[in-house]
Design a protein around this nucleic acid. Structure first.
Length: 516
RNA sequence: GGCUCCGUAGCUCAACUGGCAGAGCAGUUGACUCUUAAUCAAUUGGUUGUAGGUUCGAGUCCUACCGGAGUCACCA
């Protein structure tokens, strides 16, 4: 239960004083003729190239009604200044006692209206003596009273639009738990999420232009699958059945290929009941696509073009800077097999160790690897050789191809006994996504399911369930196709130069706090 | 889940080997009809995350718990 602190109590007292004067604290109607950005633009357009005197007259001819939140307030006496801010920008209001109704100036002078409140002001444009574009206010109205003060950051907005901040609001826990306050106060945070939105838009543009159809498939699933991860479980009361939150879209999207939708994609939330880290959140945004009549080479082509396109749209260039490193998304990206990559970085050929035992022994002897007993061969290669030693070296975009079959149940064989046509791609030392030439042989798919089930039954994890309906769909005939999945949040991290996934999620998962 | 570090006013931070809990910002009061991190004068503000313990005395030392950060494990 909320108890007002001292600052809040003072604001509540002011609210009461306003109410006694008949001032509405949260009026029903609002007017706005210009966003602040529009007002600034109109003023600049009207005065372009004019001398001072002509400019003054031109500004005086522009009449605006603007709205926004008070971010700076300077009450001087018979004249007061405030900066108000809306999403489009920030503009000064110039309030003079003689220019406006007495009772309206009085609530400013008596500081009954204060920083963080939302207000509406009407008047003509002007420049102050110091040259700052302002609205000379003739009508002033409170739109919404802020009871709790936002964290204090003083800002100086330079003429070129750059902002110097004095003081800061950096407490990460409070910033994530009260993202609204973080957004209200830290404009760079707003910029990150605008870029996130732009990233999603650019991704959709690209996929739509490539002829893909955007679809939506179930989040609540009776059988989860398509990836190796622990699911969240939930329950449908009326139907009396347990359900899982999806861990991937894979199996539903490929059913659509059976149904004659030849190129589909989905952007949505996946849920994995695993640990939380700088690149893991329990729910995260995934993009998967499947396209008939291409293989994983075709998927690589689409991938590198898509990343270059999105980077260009979001940052203006295919070359981005992430944590001080320049990264060039332009095609073509480097392509190498996992075997070549491991050979290059570690100088060993894992094919010399054809079974899990010999490979594990070698890795422990040579690299002092910390391995759990009983890890399958493919996982030693992918999780440990690649994941522990090679991954962090892959700064520029790189496709790593030809994965071990025993950890890739949905990919077609690569023509030898142990590898499949699969790639993962890496940027800035981070795994960004995963793709295959999709297996479309229903009988082999059934064997792979059974193999995976056996693998996990003897291991520590819960077994992967066998999806009979998916196999039935496949038996109707599935066109050869290439499939792709990527972590969208990680792409946003790259494009916004953010070090943790929490900084690109509006509301990252936080442990619940005790009753407050 | 393991280990390490952190939690002091609304925000950002101080407080020596245990010895009167402080500053800047903002807030409050007053002055000011072109300020802009406005200025000037005065001033309020704390269960030091919670609960115990050691001690003449705890923000500081010990234990447990809550929350966070980093790291390892698991995973994408």
């Amino acid at each position: 239960m909320w108890q007002p602190n001292k600052l809040e109590q003072e604001r509540l007292d002011k609210a009461e004083r306003l109410r006694e004067r008949g001032v509405a604290l949260y009026p029903r109607r609002v007017q706005r003729s210009h966003t602040l950005g529009d007002a600034i633009q109109a003023a600049e357009a009207a005065t372009d190239g004019l001398d001072d005197e002509a400019a003054e007259a031109a500004l005086a001819a522009i009449s605006v009604t603007v709205t926004g939140r008070i971010r700076r307030l300077n009450v001087k006496g018979g004249v007061s200044f405030m900066h108000i801010e809306d999403e489009s920008g920030r503009l000064q209001l110039f309030l003079r006692r003689n220019d406006m109704p007495a009772e309206q100036y009085a609530i400013v002078k008596e500081k009954l209206v204060e920083v963080d409140d939302f207000v509406q002001a009407s008047g003509h444009m002007m420049r102050t003596r110091a040259g700052e574009l302002s609205v000379k206010v003739s009508e002033f109205l409170l739109l919404a009273k802020a009871v709790s003060p936002l964290p204090v950051i003083k800002q100086q907005v330079n003429e070129d639009g750059s902002v110097v901040e004095f003081g800061e609001f950096t407490d990460v826990e409070t910033r994530y738990r009260q993202r609204y306050a973080d957004l209200a106060v830290n404009r760079t945070v707003r910029d990150v999420f605008r870029k996130r939105s732009l990233t999603l838009r650019a991704m959709r543009e690209f996929m739509d232009n490539e002829g893909f159809l955007e679809v939506e498939t179930p989040i609540l699933q009776p059988i989860y699958g398509g990836a190796a991860a622990r699911p969240f479980t939930t329950h449908h009361n009326q139907l009396g059945e347990d359900l899982f939150l999806r861990i991937s879209f894979e199996l539903y999207l490929k059913r659509l290929l059976v149904g004659g939708l030849d190129a589909v994609y989905e952007i949505g939330r996946d849920f994995r009941n695993e640990g939380v880290s700088w690149k893991h959140n329990p729910e995260f945004t995934m993009m998967e696509f499947y396209k008939a009549y291409i293989d994983y080479h075709g998927v690589m082509d689409i991938t590198e073009r898509m990343f270059a396109y999105i980077a260009e749209r979001v940052t203006g260039s295919p070359i981005i800077t992430f944590q001080g490193q320049e990264i060039d998304m332009s095609p073509p990206w480097r392509r190498m097999t996992i075997r070549e990559a491991v050979k290059e970085v570690l100088g060993i050929d894992y094919m010399d160790y054809p079974d899990a035992e010999s490979l594990a022994v070698m890795m422990q002897e040579k690299f002092d690897a910390k391995l759990k007993p009983g890890e399958p061969w493919g996982r030693l290669v992918v999780e440990h050789l690649l994941g522990d030693y090679v991954e962090k070296e892959l700064i520029q975009p790189t496709f790593i191809t030809e994965y071990p079959r025993d950890v890739s149940p949905f990919a077609k064989d690569a023509g030898d006994d142990v590898h499949v046509e699969r790639f993962e791609f890496f940027i800035a030392g981070m795994e960004m996504g995963n793709a295959f030439t999709e297996l479309n042989d229903p009988l082999i798919q059934q064997q792979r399911f059974e193999f995976m089930a056996a693998l996990y039954r003897e291991g520590d994890d819960d077994e992967t369930p066998l999806d009979e309906d998916y196999l039935r769909a496949m038996r109707y005939g599935m066109p050869p196709n290439g499939g792709f999945g990527m972590g969208v949040d990680r792409l946003v991290m790259l494009l916004t130069d953010q070090r943790t996934i929490r900084d690109v999620l509006l509301f990252p998962h936080m442990r619940q706090q005790g009753a407050e």
